[in-house]
């Protein structure tokens, strides 16, 4: 029972409490660069998920065989292999998206989120926990990318996933799909989340004072 709840907690941590983009501020380069539409966020998120789960699985499986002195090199070999596979497969099945994402698929290799999870988690934990952690982290990463992409797309182009969302009279804020729009969106989202957190903490403090049940 304890194990199940532990796994559950490990999974949820990546989704929200330690969300790579919104809390840990990891992987911001792709989060800024490719999120000018929601579908790009989905594609990069899916590719990163494949790489992170695959790499975590292998690193955790072979952690007893990899000498510490060459562990980072080995991680990079494993990650780079998965990235190249993702790159080729995407080029084969979705050439339009592959073209759109361009250099950012190969650049998943140096996404600090992925290497960070290998070093901090997969190299120290059993396979099941590592894969759970990787799944939570990468789904949290994907959610963040899609959220940023959707906000930028609806304001900058009037659409979400290519479907028109805004009335015809809406004049797109082109800046939102240009690079500055990525910074604006992430900054506003971070401010909003910080505000929510501060409010929740204030409320928790108030309710614990009055001996109420903490939600």
């Amino acid at each position: 029972m304890k194990r199940a709840s532990d796994l559950h907690d490990t999974f949820k941590r990546g989704l929200w409490r330690d969300n790579p983009v919104f809390i840990a501020l990891l992987g911001l380069c792709p989060a800024l660069a490719v999120t000018n539409s929601a579908i790009n966020g989905v594609a990069l998120g899916a590719a990163s998920t494949f790489v992170l789960i695959g790499a975590s699985f292998l690193v955790s499986s072979f952690r007893g065989l990899i000498p510490r002195q060459v562990r980072i090199t080995t991680f990079i070999i494993i990650i780079a292999t998965f990235v190249t596979v993702a790159d080729l497969v995407l080029a084969a099945i979705a050439p339009a998206i592959h073209k759109e994402l361009g250099a950012f698929i190969p650049l998943i290799v140096c996404n600090c989120l992925i290497l960070g999870r290998q070093e901090a988690f997969a190299f120290r934990k059993p396979v099941k926990e590592s894969v759970t952690d990787a799944a939570g982290m990468s789904i949290g990463f994907t959610i963040a990318l899609v959220l940023i992409g959707a906000i930028r797309e609806v304001l900058g182009n009037g659409t979400i996933f290519g479907l028109t969302m805004m009335p015809a009279t809406f004049e797109p804020w082109i800046i939102m799909i240009l690079p500055p729009g990525g910074f604006f969106t992430i900054a506003l989202l971070l401010a909003f989340l910080a505000h929510l957190k501060a409010r929740r903490e204030a409320r928790a403090a108030a309710s614990s004072e009055s001996k109420e049940v903490i939600r």
Binding site: D9, R13, D18, I23, A24, L115, G116, A120, F121, R124
Partner: peptide, 10 residues
């Protein structure tokens, strides 16, 4: 590393 550090950075 596992549970209590908030972010589990490498």
């Amino acid at each position: 590393m596992g549970r209590s550090s908030p972010v589990s950075l490498p």
